[in-house]
Design a protein around this nucleic acid. Structure first.
Lengths: 144, 144
DNA sequence: CCTAGTATGTTATTACATAACACTACCTAC
DNA sequence: GTAGGTAGTGTTATGTAATAACATACTAGG
């Protein structure tokens, strides 16, 4: 799991950005979590042990990590998850299991041009795309 | 614009659901709005004139209208928009213009099987799909 | 040094959403 | 017709998500 932290360090170094304590802390917590986390769970977790951590600190760290593609925000339910495929920035869909709540990342490169074309027909030029889903993951399907 | 209201009435009648006053009110306000609305703008708008309207009333109406497909929730920014293509339930992507904030609905039937297949490869069975975008609409592109 | 840029700390507030319970209207089975 | 269920609304209170605004600290370049 500490691969992610090392990747983050490297990524920041290359782009001349600071991988500061709160950013590291937030990423560590997310990387250790099996499931996507809500912001306020993250805030209280980050505050455990050391000094109290306030919302802006965590939200700023999250913004930073999201921009780097190390963390994704799941719009459906306002949760955050560490990215398994850090570094590169493939378009990735996030599918969340209704049972175990784990998130699965799925590449959707194929559909991007289709959606872009469908939008363009109506004169709409896409700059950002959000693809998310809900359903049942393999493990939970087998368990049932 | 009152087409939508009439459609809603018909739809409710057919399914034996009540198209009550708060539901009608919320739908009217959304139908009259050029752009998607935030929940609390809706709440204060609904409260204008008559009696005060509280959050639960509006949220309940929104849940109801969303289930019927008469209204869509835009997850990216927690706004709500009346559906232009009411009644049927095609999968529809919502693309929001960064400039004028209007929402454009785009059918994405084609991409559903692709995403389903991509998910299935990882053993994930999709039950719900959210596709949203940001960008620039035709009018704003021409104006620029 | 000192100052411009970047990031964090802190307080307060705004915005989004729902839990819980009381009440009403309507319908239907007896 | 009346008891009891169902569906919906009204109301209070609270929980949860996110940011504004301003003060403070760290660091690199002149």
């Amino acid at each position: 799991m500490h691969d992610l932290i090392r990747q983050a360090e490297a990524l920041c170094q290359r782009s001349g950005m600071a991988f500061t304590a709160p950013r590291r802390r937030v990423l560590e917590i997310l990387a250790a979590s099996e499931t996507p986390m809500k912001a306020y769970d993250l805030i209280s977790k980050a505050g455990e042990g050391g000094q109290a951590t306030k919302p802006p600190t965590v939200y700023r760290a999250l913004d930073f990590l999201c921009q780097l593609g190390l963390v994704h925000r799941i719009e459906q339910d306002a949760t955050f998850v560490a990215c398994n495929h850090a570094g590169h920035s493939h378009p990735m869909a996030l599918f969340v299991c209704n049972t175990c709540l784990k998130a699965t990342e799925v590449a959707y490169d194929e559909v991007v041009p289709i959606l872009e074309k469908a939008a363009e027909v109506q004169g709409f030029h896409l700059t950002r795309l959000v693809v998310e889903g809900r359903g049942q993951c393999r493990d939970c399907a087998l368990a049932a």
